[in-house]
Computed example of a mutant assay.
Amino acid sequence: MEFALNAETISIPLELIRENGSVRAAGENPEHVRLLAEIFDSLPPVLVHSSTLHLIDGLHRVRAARLRGHETIKAQLFEGSESEAFVLAVRANVSHGLPLSLTDRKSACVRIISMHPDWSNRRIARVAGISPKTVGSLRENKDGSAASRVGQDGRVRPLNASAGRQRAAELILANPDQSLRQVARAAGVSPETVRDVRRRLSRNEGPTPSGARPEGRQDSSGDEQNPENWRRAVRTLQSDPAMRYTEHGRLLLRLLSLHVMDYDEWASILRAVPEYARPAVSQAAQGCVSIWTSTVRRLEEEEEPTKSA
């Protein structure tokens, strides 16, 4: 989802800003307010919903302004619906400033599920700052589950991949001249899936490969292996203050940034490896794969990283 933010910073009277509907159940943190009051002049503008003047992001900054006796505060306006404003509020409070509690993140997750039942678990998890597994468990008690969901990349995918493939096969047989994208859009699958279905039909095979995941297990946002998707994820992390201004965050960014290169660059690097060293490089690379695979598993299974003593 793209958010329409007014780049211009304006001054808004504090008395006009509506603070109800905060994503923080516990309200303000007085200690954090005092800290912000001390560095108030260096703080970024708050974010306000233009049509309702509801505060989207910046509760503690507003309280800090009042503590200093200000009557106005710098703000940016958000042009969008109230549901979009809520999603933006959750995303903003998860990614920077005083972190939301796990309870607040779960509460926000439930509300987002109600607003956007078609969103994938991974897409909601990324907004709410919890694991896709937790989103799935919270979704189980909700009614009206959609037949398809929208992933982080904005593409619609059916929960039952077999149904999507079957629909693609029907469309291909009905009109073989349709383009991959036309069929993909109508069937709710990716163009690559349509390509595979078309190839299978040409070999007189069924549209669904053996070993396909069963219904209810198709909630992945897909395309995690797409280079542009994970490069975009790295760029997003690189712009996150919570990552850039902590020692461990900077270290993780350096590790991730090492992989942000295209395949031609990788090919050039590999061609420079001496023949005798290739087995050792292969073994070392496999070790890196193991570490990153373990990292993915831990991030998906743990709702909050374990803090070292």
Rank of each mutant, 00 (worst) to 15 (best):
A174N: 02
H60D: 12
A147V: 04
A65R: 04
R139L: 05
R155C: 06
R155W: 00
L102C: 01
R61T: 10
F78I: 06
L100M: 08
E170R: 00
N175G: 03
E71W: 00
L102P: 15
L138R: 08
V156K: 06
T134A: 05
R66K: 01
E170G: 06
S101K: 09
L67G: 07
G144C: 12
R165P: 01
L100Q: 05
Q152W: 11
N93C: 13
P117C: 08
R122H: 10
S114G: 09
I124C: 15
H70G: 13
L77M: 07
P117R: 05
S120V: 08
R155Y: 03
I73E: 04
E140L: 12
D57N: 08
Q182H: 15
R91P: 00
T134I: 08
G164Y: 07
T103G: 10
V135K: 12
Q178L: 09
S131A: 01
R139S: 11
T103N: 12
I130W: 13
V46C: 02
M115T: 04
A161T: 03
A125P: 07
T134S: 11
Q178Y: 03
L98Q: 11
S51W: 06
D104L: 03
S114Q: 02
E82M: 03
P45G: 07
W119Y: 15
P158F: 06
G144F: 12
W119L: 13
L88G: 12
M115F: 04
S101F: 04
C109H: 07
D57K: 09
D104M: 03
R123Y: 12
P132Q: 02
A89T: 07
G58S: 04
P158L: 05
L59C: 13
G144V: 10
G129C: 10
R111Y: 05
L100G: 08
H49V: 01
Q166D: 04
V150F: 01
R157E: 01
L159Q: 00
P158S: 05
S107R: 09
S50L: 10
A169C: 04
I172L: 08
R181F: 13
L67C: 02
S145E: 15
D177M: 10
T52N: 12
D177N: 03
H116W: 14
R91Q: 00
G151P: 00
K133R: 09
L171F: 04
G69R: 00
G154N: 02
G80I: 00
K74F: 02
K106Q: 03
S148R: 15
A147D: 09
A146P: 03
D57P: 08
I73K: 05
N175A: 04
A168Y: 14
V62W: 11
S83H: 11
A146S: 15
R123M: 10
R157C: 01
R157A: 01
F78Q: 10
S101P: 00
N160A: 08
L159F: 01
